[in-house]
Design a protein around this nucleic acid. Structure first.
Length: 359
DNA sequence: TAGGCCATCTGGTCCT
DNA sequence: AGGACCAGATGGCCTA
């Protein structure tokens, strides 16, 4: 859109007009406040913009061609007075009928926009329910939900590729790529993993995570009942997961009993994560690599090719201040040792993984 | 109090 | 022409 805007010179005058308005709004604070007070009506059902606002004028100017009385009446619109004359379409005189029609149109548009955003939010809510760490009481933010969902998809696809369970540290690292530290803590806590541990467990040389390779039969009791387990309750510091009842998608992935949240009556869509237990995956997995996966593979190949001896440690990713600093997905390599364990992976998959990881 | 997140309004653009 | 989509602006709420 921006490209389109900047590539189309005919649109620039309007942009300039808008910029000028923005600047005016800074310099003429009182005037703008006044306009806003007219323009913004906080209540949902009272969103009738006041046509005295300059923005309302700019919208109205380009429509209602059927009005004959519309003239080059610069006096009214250019009434901001001493400023430079604005270019673009001539403003038309507002008649009460036009004002009314414009109000109506704007109300309808606002209502549609609200509905659209509500739909979007409900879709996001549904997404929250199928990514790890769903909680009714403490929702992930929109951006974190999207990031986590992306990582989750990536983690699942990696599982599909390898045909085996990843180790927990790798799994959590994948889930937490690019997430904020609070969300990282949530996800890690959700999986009963100290985020500091899994971050610092990254071997700087690209080696294995100490003690993270073991995939015994029951290494991860990730069930919601864990929230009441003595281990969880005896934690040194209070954890939000304990109070908010987070549950992990790892549960459903690897043998956890159904989490109560997934049976939420509010949720109407399909609730199962797309992967079944014991390697019987239900996701469609086509032979061709999807663009997203290909992109991911590219990231990983970049990562593995350029990383030798230079991979930043976790401390570089999350500074002591807790502020995330320039984290890149390439900086974390959750699956760097997966290609070493391919007992159950079909040979083509293994080859493909090798191609990705050693490119 | 600053910053993050969010809902809403708004105008521009594209599509049907 | 009208609706969908998008992005900027703004103010409210919450939290560290």
């Amino acid at each position: 859109m921006l490209t389109r805007l900047f590539s189309d010179p005919s649109l620039l005058p309007d942009m300039h007009k808008y910029s000028a308005w923005a600047e005016d709004s800074e310099s003429e604070d009182s005037k703008t406040k006044d306009d806003e007070d007219h323009c913004r009506v906080g209540d949902d059902d009272m969103d009738v913009p006041d046509m005295r606002s300059s923005r309302a004028h700019s919208e109205i100017g380009g429509e209602d061609e059927d009005d004959d009385e519309a003239d080059e009446d610069e006096g009214e619109d250019g009434a901001e007075g001493d400023g430079p004359k604005k270019r673009g379409p001539k403003k038309r005189k507002m008649t009460p009928a036009r004002i009314e029609r414009s109000k109506l149109r704007r109300q309808k548009a606002n209502s549609r926009e609200r509905t659209r955003m509500h739909d979007l939010n409900s879709a996001l809510d549904n997404l929250r329910k199928v990514v790890p760490c769903y909680s009714k009481t403490q929702k992930l933010s929109k951006i974190e939900t999207l990031r986590l969902a992306k990582n989750y998809i990536w983690a699942l696809s990696e599982i599909l590729r390898s045909g085996k369970k990843p180790d927990l540290v790798s799994y959590v690292q994948t889930l937490c790529k690019g997430l904020s530290q609070p969300t990282t803590n949530l996800v890690a806590g959700c999986l009963q993993l100290n985020s500091r541990n899994f971050l610092t467990e990254q071997c700087p040389e690209g080696g294995r995570y100490p003690g993270s390779n073991s995939f015994s039969m029951h290494p991860y009791p990730y069930q919601c009942s864990r929230l009441s387990s003595p281990q969880y309750q005896s934690g040194s510091n209070s954890h939000p997961l304990r109070t908010h009842g987070y549950c992990s998608a790892y549960d459903s992935l690897y043998g956890g009993s159904g989490s109560p949240e997934y049976n939420s009556p509010e949720y109407e869509g399909p609730i199962s994560p797309p992967v079944c237990i014991n390697g019987n995956f239900s996701l469609k997995h086509q032979g061709t690599t999807s663009p997203e996966v290909a992109e991911k593979g590219y990231h990983y190949s970049m990562h593995y090719s350029g990383l030798a001896g230079s991979r930043p440690t976790a401390g570089h990713i999350y500074g002591s201040s807790g502020v995330r600093s320039s984290i890149h997905s390439e900086n974390v390599s959750p699956y760097h040792d997966m290609h070493l364990h391919h007992e159950r992976a079909p040979v083509p998959v293994y080859d493909e993984l090798n191609a990705f990881f050693h490119n």
